[in-house]
Design a protein around this nucleic acid. Structure first.
Lengths: 343, 343
DNA sequence: TTGTACGCGTTATCAG
DNA sequence: CTGATAACGCGTACAA
């Protein structure tokens, strides 16, 4: 019942009457080893079921090939897909991923970052929590020589690489589409304005109104309506107005759009004829609802890949600081039935 | 532009004219250090922004506090929640998680396992891919002193700890519910029979029929109908029978149930009056569809927690082999509109 | 081409 | 209670 000892380079060196360093060289493949001994080493390594001890290797090399990810939720489609995209690249490079959820809490986010610092990860990929305010926990990363890549929900004031989708542009397109379809009073559900993505989406909304000569009606703009429940409440209020909207752009998320649909259905309001609905993010369920929900696809998996490539191609080498540190992945409007007033 | 050197226990020892070992002791908290020096050490550790190097620590201690997870897909609710449950426990213990997706491919699964072996993780938590057949890659884990916990989709022949939900029981309950509601011809969509969970669910279906004196009608049982598309195809075929079913139990997944609903709606068949539908897993969207879908909640987050607790409470210590190695988390039938024939 | 020797940052085991 | 020292497994500059 004694502890299994894993085979090390010493074990295989001993067996071959060689030195451990030769084994190390042969295994890493870079340096000069004679073909014959190399073959011999590889063969017995396989026989002895050798696996490199990454802890020792990383310790020696001074870097652990691990990347930490911090996202609000792992089980939202946008993030799950982004992670899948990241994994696809890092997997090939032999890097590991440590995944943390902040659960939309800044406090928990700080803890996650702290854990990752303790793990001495090479890089942290972050999308901030909803109540993000203070960024001091991020500033400290530099002292620990940990790279930071922000995506989607970013702190703009921080000078890091960022991977974003064109939020303003997408919102502009969505609202323009609503206008084209003949909607006249378009409401906006907006998210916490401390997050730049939500400010940008609002800007896109405003720009589209302006371009088409529509007035900005303050009572049609609702703050902090970014969950299913909050979206529903906001919708109740909007529909109770003397002049209710004939379309609602849930710029915050598809979940909010779902809340809108809930209320519309409970009130027997016809979507899209009496009320147009547009969401954001292209969650899977938007295709399933009755009617299906128009939304914006952010190519989340592409975003993930971009992030990982950014790290390997630019940041890791990290000698010259780039001037352009922002990558934009252009999103796409996905038109579905919830806004098709004119078939 | 030179590389930041992280502070080590030597740095803080030097500053205090102490020995590194004292610092180590103070930091780990276990051993005997005088209160005063301990306080002093902790204080300057904080000042110097010290973080333990886990690579070095783990190397020295001979175990890396990391657990690997291999699941078919990270973005299915069941798995995402299970992972969240695992994380909740491991996070507190200071353990890290490495997450891999097999994408339902045995080949990829083997690669994932291999990567995790290379990482020398302490434990692997696995739910097998759909085309799982050979288990030799799992047998080799013991040689590397890596514990294995299987959950949900398990290889029964392997003598490991397993965390399961009562699949047979749940299927029995679901079919009994359909019978109670007055459905007479209940079809079954079943999954790949190489996976035990699907065999168990089928057994539950058969048992419920038997108990209620219903005949087993072979043509109502459809193999490999376990995605939305395959579920739809199977439904097309079922509905084309001379005597079509009046209820379909999509034992494989809610996705298959969704495929059933697709077809019913395209054919103008009333659910639940003309056709009852029951899924499996309680994916979020089952609540959103029209009508909402009756399904089975497996308490996936609980399953995750159980797995992690199993590791820390029993397996890690790992001296005495347990006789009972299977933990069952009892699932629950969630009745929704798709089966409520009698309101 | 191969061997020697050292250090990565910790912790465990001895002494003192 | 504290200090010195070895060892975890690997990679690499240097010497042979």
């Amino acid at each position: 019942m004694e502890k299994q000892k894993r085979t090390t380079i010493y074990d295989i060196a001993k067996k071959l009457n060689l030195n451990a360093s030769s084994v190390s060289r042969a295994l890493s493949g870079n340096s000069n080893v004679s073909e014959t001994t190399k073959a011999l080493i590889l063969k017995t390594a396989k026989e002895l079921n050798y696996r490199q001890n990454s802890m020792a290797s990383n310790l020696r090399k001074g870097e652990n090939q691990t990347i930490g990810i911090v996202v609000p939720r792992i089980n939202q489609n946008f993030f799950a897909n982004a992670i899948a995209g990241i994994e696809e690249v890092t997997y090939q490079k032999g890097y590991n991923l440590i995944i943390c959820q902040s659960n939309e809490s800044a406090e928990r986010e700080i803890k996650c970052i702290d854990t990752l610092i303790n793990q001495h990860v090479s890089c942290i990929i972050l999308s901030t929590s909803a109540d993000f305010e203070d960024n001091s926990h991020l500033k400290s990363l530099a002292e620990h020589d940990i790279k930071l890549i922000q995506f989607d929900r970013v702190d703009e004031t921080l000078d890091t690489y960022k991977v974003l989708s064109g939020n303003e542009e997408a919102a502009f397109e969505a609202v323009s589409h609503l206008i084209e379809q003949g909607y006249k009073r378009i409401a906006l559900l907006e998210g916490p304005q401390n997050l730049s993505i939500f400010r940008e989406r609002k800007a896109g909304y405003l720009a589209a109104l302006k371009k088409n000569g529509f007035p900005v009606i303050k009572e049609l703009i609702r703050e902090n309506a970014w969950t299913r429940e909050l979206g529903a409440i906001a919708t109740e209020n909007l529909l109770a107005l003397p002049e209710p909207p004939d379309a609602i752009f849930a710029s915050t998320s598809d979940f909010a759009a779902l809340g809108v649909l809930d209320v519309a259905q409970s009130k027997g309001i016809n979507v899209p004829q009496q009320l147009g609905i547009c969401g954001f993010s292209n969650e899977d369920f938007t295709e399933i609802t009755q009617p299906s929900i128009t939304t914006i696809d952010q190519f989340s998996k592409e975003i993930g890949k971009s992030i990982a490539n950014l790290y390997f191609q630019k940041i890791k080498k990290g000698t010259v600081a780039d001037l352009i540190k922002v990558v934009n992945i252009k999103p796409k409007l996905v038109v579905r039935n919830s806004t098709l007033k004119n078939g």
